[in-house]
Write a protein that binds this DNA or RNA. Sequence first.
DNA 1: GATGAATGAGGCTTCATTCAT
DNA 2: GATGAATGAAGCCTCATTCAT
Lengths: 214, 214, 214, 214
Amino acid sequence: MPKDTFNHLSEEKKEKIMRASIHEFNEHGFEKGNVGEIARQAGIAKGSMYQYFENKSELFLDTVKWAMGFLEMNFSKFITIQDKTMDIFDYLYQNAKAATFQMREERGLAVFIQNVFLGKFRELSDETMDYMLKMSDEYILNMIRVGKENGSVRKDIDDNILSLFVIGVSYKIKEYLMKKARNNGQDIIDEDYEVYENEIKAMIELLKHGMGGK
Amino acid sequence: MPKDTFNHLSEEKKEKIMRASIHEFNEHGFEKGNVGEIARQAGIAKGSMYQYFENKSELFLDTVKWAMGFLEMNFSKFITIQDKTMDIFDYLYQNAKAATFQMREERGLAVFIQNVFLGKFRELSDETMDYMLKMSDEYILNMIRVGKENGSVRKDIDDNILSLFVIGVSYKIKEYLMKKARNNGQDIIDEDYEVYENEIKAMIELLKHGMGGK
Amino acid sequence: MPKDTFNHLSEEKKEKIMRASIHEFNEHGFEKGNVGEIARQAGIAKGSMYQYFENKSELFLDTVKWAMGFLEMNFSKFITIQDKTMDIFDYLYQNAKAATFQMREERGLAVFIQNVFLGKFRELSDETMDYMLKMSDEYILNMIRVGKENGSVRKDIDDNILSLFVIGVSYKIKEYLMKKARNNGQDIIDEDYEVYENEIKAMIELLKHGMGGK
Amino acid sequence: MPKDTFNHLSEEKKEKIMRASIHEFNEHGFEKGNVGEIARQAGIAKGSMYQYFENKSELFLDTVKWAMGFLEMNFSKFITIQDKTMDIFDYLYQNAKAATFQMREERGLAVFIQNVFLGKFRELSDETMDYMLKMSDEYILNMIRVGKENGSVRKDIDDNILSLFVIGVSYKIKEYLMKKARNNGQDIIDEDYEVYENEIKAMIELLKHGMGGK
DNA sequence: GATGAATGAGGCTTCATTCAT
DNA sequence: GATGAATGAAGCCTCATTCAT
C-alpha cells in the first residue's frame, strides 16, 4: 500500500505518477526501471517518491494495484456479469472484448497488467498479488463447476485441467491482442475491431468444440 | 555466439559454465544474475567469462542456445517424428511427454528453457532466438495445415488462430508441469508419471474435442 | 539559543521536546539523530522544529543547555556549597553523590550530559559550551588554590596538573556510575546507594592519599 | 578483518589507504567520514575500497586495528616490559612516555587511537574492539594485584576501584597531551619533552601519594 | 589464455531544510 | 504560528567490464 501522503494527493497527480511508473516499468522492466526517471516523468522530486512509497518494490506493487483498480473501474462496464451462474463462454468472450477495448483506450496500462498476469515480472511475490491471481482462478473454476451442472461443460474431465485449458487459451489470446496492439503503433481504428471480434469468437469456439475435424 | 575461446574448452568445462549460468539466471533473473557468481560457481576466473563471451547479454543468449541444444540432443528420442505429416495431437502428446522427462532428469535446464519460451526474460531480442521461436511456430503451423488436409483438423478456422490455441494450451500445461516439479522438490517418482500422463491426455482431448458439454 | 517561538511555549511542551531530543541523541548520536523522529516523539510537526530552532546543530546545543539547566535546578540542592572556600574533597563527594541521584531520577538526562562532558559528541564547538566547560574547570582550579592555602592540598605540584588529576578521576567515576546505571536497567534501589557511596568515598580517598602502599 | 585483496597489496599502498582513512575519520568522525574521499586521498578508485573492505563499518574497524598494530610495532620499544610483575607506576610512566613520542612522530595515528579509546566514536561495538579494551583493563588489573602483593599498592581498596582510578588519570593525561599536540600545530621540539616528562611524573606522583596536603 | 584486481558509472535511499497552506 | 509535504543533495554500495600480469 502507498503511504498516506500519496493518498492525500489530487487524483490527477496520483494518476500522473502511476502512469509514469507504468510507462517506465513497461519500458525497462522492474530492475532497470528507474525511480528518478519516474519522478522526472511525473514532474516531481525524486525524494517525493519516497514520501509516497516505501521503496521501489512497494512502488511497483502499488502501481499494479492502481492499474488493476483503474481498469476495473473504467472497463468493468464491458463485462456485464448478470449472476454467479454466468456461462463461462460468455464470460470469456466479454472478458476478451474488454481487454480489446482496454488495449485501444489504455494500451500502456493494459499491457502492463497483462504482463503482470503473464508473469513477466519475476520480482513479485506479494500475498496481495497471489491473492488476485488466485481470485481469478477461483472465478474460472466456479464457472466451470456451474457449467458442469447445467450441462454446458463436459463432466468427464477434472476441474483443474479444464481451468488450465481455459486460462491457457485465454492468456494466449490476450498476449496476441497485446502484440497486435504494439505492432499497430499508435492507432487502432474501428475496422480492426471486427477482426479482433472474429478472432476472439473463433477462440471461444475452439474452447467449446475443440479443433478436431468432423 | 560464444567466442572461439569458449569452443576450445573441454566439453565438461563448457557444461560446467553453462550450468552455472543457467542456475544463476534461474535463481535471480537476467538483471540480478551476477557474472562473477557464475564464474565462481563454474570454478573459473571472472575475467575468463569475458574471454568466452562478449558480455552478459551474449552470455545469456549463448546459454539459451546451449540449453536448447542440450535438451534436443538428449531428449529428442522421446519425440519420434516419423515424417513431416505427423499428426499434431500425437506430436503434442510426445512433446509434453518429453518435457515431463526433461523436468525429471534436468529440472534446472528445462525450467530455464520453459521460462525463456514463456517470455519471462524480457531482455532478449536476438535474431537467432526469434528464429527458434518462429521455427517452433512454423512447425505447429505446418502440422495444422497437414491436419486440415487429412481431415484431422477442422477447416473452418484460420491457421493462425488454431496455432495460438494449440500453443496457449501447450505452454500452459508445461507451466503446470514446471510448477509441479518445483513443488515436488527433489524427487519425482515413477507413480507421478501416470498422473502426469493422464493430465496430458486430458489436455489433448480438450484440444481435439473442446470442453463443450454433451 | 532557541528562537523566541520556543520560549513562548508552555513549560510542559518545551520539556517534552527537549526530552525527545535527549532521547534521540542518546540513542543514535548527533549525526544519526533524526529531527523528524524527535518531532514525532514530542508530538509536534517536523516543520515546527525549525520554528523553534535554527537547525539541527543549534537544536543539539540548546538541548545541552536545557539539560544542564534542568539538572542544576533540580539537583543543586544536593551540592550544598557553603562558601567559596569549600573543601575540594567535600565538593567532589557531593558532586558525585548528586550525579548518582541524577542517574537514578533522570537517567536519560544525566547520561546525556555526562556524555557531552566526556566529549562523546565531537560535533560541538559553541562558545557557550566552551564557557561552561571552562567554568567547571575554573571551579576546580579555584578550590585547588584554596586548598593549597589552607593546607589541604599539597603545594609542590602545578595547579593545572592537579586539576587534570581531579577531573580525570572524577569523570571516570561518573562514567562508571553511568555504565552501572545502564546495566541495572530500570531499577536502582536504595541498597545500591550504599555500594555507590562506598565506591565514591574510596575514590576520594585515593585522590587524597594516593594508591601507594604504606 | 579486511578482505584478502587488501592484504595482497603492497605495504606502501596499504599504509596509504589506512592513513587516508585515519585522516578522514579524525577530521569528520565516522558518520561524516566519506569513503569516496578516502579513496581519493589514497589515489585509488572508490569501488576498490569495497574490494578491500566489506563496508564502511568494517573499514573503520580495520583501520583501528591497523593503527594499533602500527603503533605497537613502532613504539613498543618505548615500553620495556621486563616481566609480568612490572611495577604499575613504571608501566604508566613508560606508557605515557610512549604516547608522547607517538604524538610527536605520528600525531594523526595517535590521536585516532586515543579517540577510539576515549570512546569518541560511538559507532563501534565489535567484539574485537571490546576485547582490546578489556585486554588493557586486564593488564592494569594484573599489575594492581601484583602491586598489592609486593606492597607497592595499598591493600584496603578494591581492585576495580583502583583500576578506575588509574585509568581515569591515565586517559586524562593522554587527552591532555593530545590537546597540547593539536594546539602546537605541526612542530613539537625537544624542549617540550622535558615539560611533558615533568607533567607525566607529577601525575604518577599523584597516583602514588595522592594530592592531600602536608 | 587465464587470472583477479581495478575501475567508475549508476541507482536507491535518507533526511535536513524549505515552502505553501 | 503550525503543519507536513516537497525538495534535492549527498553517500553507500553493486557490479559489468577492462586491464595488467
